[in-house]
Design a protein around this nucleic acid. Sequence first.
DNA 1: ATTTTGATTGACTAATCAGTCGCAAATATA
DNA 2: TATATTTGCGACTGATTAGTCAATCAAAAT
Lengths: 186, 186
Amino acid sequence: MDKKEKIIDTALKLFVENGFHGTATSKIAQEAVVANGTLFNYFKTKDELVVAIYISVKEDMADFLIKNIKDSDNFKDVMKSQFLASLFWALNNQMKFKFIQQFHTSPYVDKIEQEVTQSQVLPHLKLIQTGIDKGLIKKLPVDFIYSIISSQTFGVYQYIISKQFTKVQQHETVEQTFELLWDMIK
Amino acid sequence: MDKKEKIIDTALKLFVENGFHGTATSKIAQEAVVANGTLFNYFKTKDELVVAIYISVKEDMADFLIKNIKDSDNFKDVMKSQFLASLFWALNNQMKFKFIQQFHTSPYVDKIEQEVTQSQVLPHLKLIQTGIDKGLIKKLPVDFIYSIISSQTFGVYQYIISKQFTKVQQHETVEQTFELLWDMIK
DNA sequence: ATTTTGATTGACTAATCAGTCGCAAATATA
DNA sequence: TATATTTGCGACTGATTAGTCAATCAAAAT
């Protein structure tokens, strides 16, 4: 197996479990069954590793969302498919989702260039803009609506995790939340 | 000035700036103009300090919210006053708010007893229950609605921070968001 | 068969860390 | 004033840390 990938996977797990600074590089190397020096061959510093994981995880999610855009001419359906896909991904990649949250609320966020982040939300902003142009959702700033939807996603995620829902219950809750959300912005 | 308070204030600032493990206890003591050992007189361990700050900050916020409950028989007004107060506090105590976020998405959350957290959200849950009983808001699980509102609060906060709004613009945005929220749950 | 190349290793280090401890100063009690 | 208690100090330590580097290895290229 690719050592770089192994290091990323192991580090992701340990970071989520013990925090960024709470995880020693030696521990990562040890658990990844790799020499200490190998880690630093692939990542010049520990910080570089953290940022690399963030980018990798974000790409992973972005790829999934792109693949799941419902190609319908019904705007609400398209919005819904994206909302469902986001939550589906989060619930099926809890460690990665937690990592993103941890990263976003940590001082590391400042170490990442705006462009990287911006390019990933752009498709979503465009989708929202389309809805506004068609008069299907309220005339509000696109990034305001995006902000609301994102945090709502996070909120439902937390709620679902806190309960021990079955897949069916999870799906019901997500559907229900989208309807609420839609009522709000339509 | 009270040394314990000075330590908490300094630690809060440094933790938000550099993360929990990224901040050395020696650095905290130094910046608080206090001896290294003094810090450990007040807090047995670094972890204890982190948790103490969390509790202190949470109390601070809870106190503010209690003081700002509008004593009206108009349910919507009461809800609104709480929503506005939450955001007002967050915007005027950004460091403390950031600390809470950082804490919530860190492995430290597990170190805090459920009871402490529960007692602080209870008044809000009760308020929501009242609204449901009176048939003023939708019949959904109270903690689900609480989840929705909380994440909405966080979302608007993030949005307002990302823009550089004047006080007036901030207020307008918050008011507007509450109306959206109300439309969603009513 | 020999050389070259690049990946991999793990012992090593200088720095930093959380936490200790014996003592001094300040404050309270008598 | 004398004594007791609390509060504060900072040099110290043993453990741990991120990061280095010269040596080794496997495999490909010559």
